[in-house]
Each structure stands twice: as structure tokens, then as C-alpha cells.
């Protein structure tokens, strides 16, 4: 396998990073990088760790790691997943370190501890952290329940002061979204991109054919996360198998971006020909500038969710037979 880190691997340009991935030969991983500058989204690191776990620590090699900014990889803990030692010396107590290093979560107890422990790392006011805890909590739980990954969930995040944004990546090397939906929704998940989009529809869960879910799963998680990103006018991306769905930025002149139950109605890009990744990567940028409260956001999501359930119910009503 091969991955190449560039000087601008953010969600806006994520297709470029993905097009350079090579998942052939799963027993080795070679990581190439820009010789002078490395700038990567935490989702890139989460994905590389998933690849490194598949290859085995001793089979991961960095090539031409010369950029001084590569110390970020050390700061985020990437070298803990490789045999190779870090060539960098970093001061771990620098004030700028508002980040959550790469962490592997294997069960709900570890998840709860992680969510409690991560907030102080970000040095953010308490009222700004609800959306972050919500997003990470739901995405981690999705991995633990649906991904079928024995290695667990890989999470990393970074706060960017200039844009007042937190960028989050969560990845697993599990069965992928298509397989996760196959049992109950085979006809709606024939391709990876179909599966990704169907999983975002309100009330659709991989654990039941019934819309509305079971006692343990409502099928609402990804719809909520997508909506949180949408209202905050930020990127949200899912990469699984060969499919990629990316929510694009809303025009800032639009005061309130409209939430849609059908992901096809959102301003997005999609493809189903990406290098095949066995697992799922979810990446999200959350702006903390958003003036509307998290409660208002939840209220807006509730209205759209309720309407989606009602509309789908109406579609199943039987028509009177006029003869």
C-alpha cells in the first residue's frame, strides 16, 4: 500500500489525496511526503493508521520524510503505529497544541473515557464543546456497533485557531458501509456510494429492514452529523469502499442552509471509483464561529427528521379504489 502526504491535504482537496492512495499489497505500507511542507487533515492520519494496522507495524516505512512540519506527525502520535522512530524532537507542552492525538477506541468504556478526557486537550469553552462531543460520540459508536472492526475506531482531531474550526477524522478497517447494509437493504446498497447515501437517510439502520429502527438503533446518527456540518457550513465526508460522498460548503449569503433528508438533495460531490478502501473514513470540519446555539440546531434537525418520517409514512398509504 502507498499513501502520499502533501502540503494541502484538507477536505477541500481530499480527492487529490485519495487519488494518490494505493491499497494493493496490503502487507506493506510506504508513506511518501512533500519534501518541504506537510499539512494534513486529522482524517488523513486516521486513515494511514488504519492502513498501518493492516500492514503491521514492522511493515510501515516512511520515504523522504524531510519536511520540518512533519513534526506534526510525531505530535499526533503517528510514529506509535510504525516501527520507524520519529526523526523529530518536539516540545509536547507548546501552547499551540490544541489537538487530540491519534487514539484507538475498542469499546464503550474507552469511548466514554476518551470523550471525558478530550475536551481539556482542546482548551475550548464548555459551551463550544457540546457539538464536538456529540459528533465524536455518535461516530465512534457507529464504528463500535456497525463496522465489524476488531481493531476498533481510530480518531484524531485538531483545532485551528485562525478559522476557529475543529477538524475531526474517524476511521476503521472494518467491513465497510456497503456490507454493513447488505443484510437488510441489499437493493438500496448495490454500490458503495448508494450504501453511503442510504445510511444517511433518516430512520435507516443497518440493523433492521424497518424504517424507524429497533430499541437500540434509530438510524438517525449520520443524518444528524451531516446536518450539524451543514448548518455550520462546513465539510463532511464519508469514504468507504470505492465510494466518496462529500458535503460541499454552503454559500455564506444563505442565512440558514436548508436541511434535506435525502443526501442527493444536498450540495455535494460524489464518486464511486475511488481506490478501494476496506473500511470507512468519516471526516468533518466543525466551525465554532457558528452563532446559533447547538440547541437551535438540534431543534431544526428534529423538524426535518420528523417531516421525513411523516412523508415516508404517507407514501405507504393505500389509495382508495375508485371503480
Amino acid at each position: 500500500m502507498k499513501a502520499t502526504l502533501s502540503n494541502s491535504d484538507y477536505l477541500r482537496n481530499f480527492d487529490r489525496f485519495i487519488s494518490r492512495l494505493d491499497f494493493s499489497d496490503p502487507d506493506t505500507l510506504r508513506i511518501y511526503s512533500h519534501p518541504k511542507w506537510i499539512n494534513v487533515h486529522p482524517a488523513v492520519l486516521a486513515l494511514i493508521v488504519a492502513m498501518a494496522m493492516r500492514a503491521g507495524k514492522q511493515n510501515v516505512m516512511f520515504e523522504n520524510l524531510t519536511a520540518t512540519s512533519g513534526s506534526y506527525l510525531d505530535r499526533m502520535g503517528l510514529f506509535e503505529f510504525t516501527q520507524q522512530k520519529s526523526p523529530y524532537t518536539i516540545n509536547k507542552k507548546e501552547e499551540s497544541g490544541r489537538f487530540i492525538p491519534i487514539t484507538v477506541i475498542k469499546n464503550s468504556t474507552e469511548q466514554s473515557k476518551f470523550i471525558t478526557d478530550m475536551v481539556p486537550l482542546l482548551h475550548l469553552p464548555a459551551d463550544k464543546t457540546d457539538a464536538i462531543k456529540y459528533t465524536i460520540g455518535e461516530l465512534l459508536r457507529n464504528v463500535l456497533e456497525h463496522a465489524g472492526s476488531t481493531a476498533g475506531a481510530i480518531v484524531a482531531a485538531q483545532y485551528y485557531k485562525k478559522s476557529n474550526t475543529i477538524r475531526i477524522g474517524i476511521c476503521d478497517g472494518g467491513i465497510g458501509m456497503k456490507k454493513s447494509l447488505q443484510h437488510y437493504w441489499a437493493s438500496r446498497s448495490k454500490t458503495d456510494i448508494e450504501a453511503i447515501k442510504w445510511a444517511m437517510v433518516p430512520g435507516i439502520s443497518g440493523t433492521t429492514r424497518k424504517e424507524g429502527g429497533t430499541e437500540d438503533n434509530a438510524g438517525a446518527g449520520l443524518f444528524f452529523i451531516k446536518s450539524i456540518a451543514q448548518v455550520a457550513r462546513n465539510y463532511f465526508m464519508i469514504y468507504s469502499g470505492s465510494g466518496i460522498y462529500k458535503l460541499l460548503l454552503h454559500d455564506k449569503r444563505v442565512e440558514k442552509p436548508r436541511l434535506h433528508p435525502d443526501p442527493d438533495d444536498d450540495r455535494h460531490s460524489e464518486r464511486n471509483d475511488a481506490p478501494y478502501f476496506q473500511g470507512t473514513l468519516v471526516a468533518i470540519d466543525l466551525s465554532l464561529e457558528n452563532k446559533s446555539e447547538f440547541t437551535q440546531l438540534l431543534s431544526a434537525i428534529r423538524e426535518v427528521y420528523g417531516k421525513a418520517v411523516r412523508d415516508r409514512k404517507r407514501k405507504k398509504y393505500k389509495e382508495p379504489r375508485f371503480i
Binding site: 430512520g203 424497518k210 424504517e211 429502527g213 446555539e293 440547541t295 431543534s299 427528521y305 409514512k313
Partner: peptide
Amino acid sequence: DVVKEVIKTVYEYMQESLDSGNYE
């Protein structure tokens, strides 16, 4: 307020689901 909003959401969609018999 956050807890209230989430509880209201679950109450709403659960009652919708019950009405339709669309919950297993």
C-alpha cells in the same frame, strides 16, 4: 437545553413510528 431537545426528538419520532406501526 441540549438534553431537552434530544428527548423531544426521540418522543416525536417514536410517536410517529408507533402511529404507522413501522417500528420493530
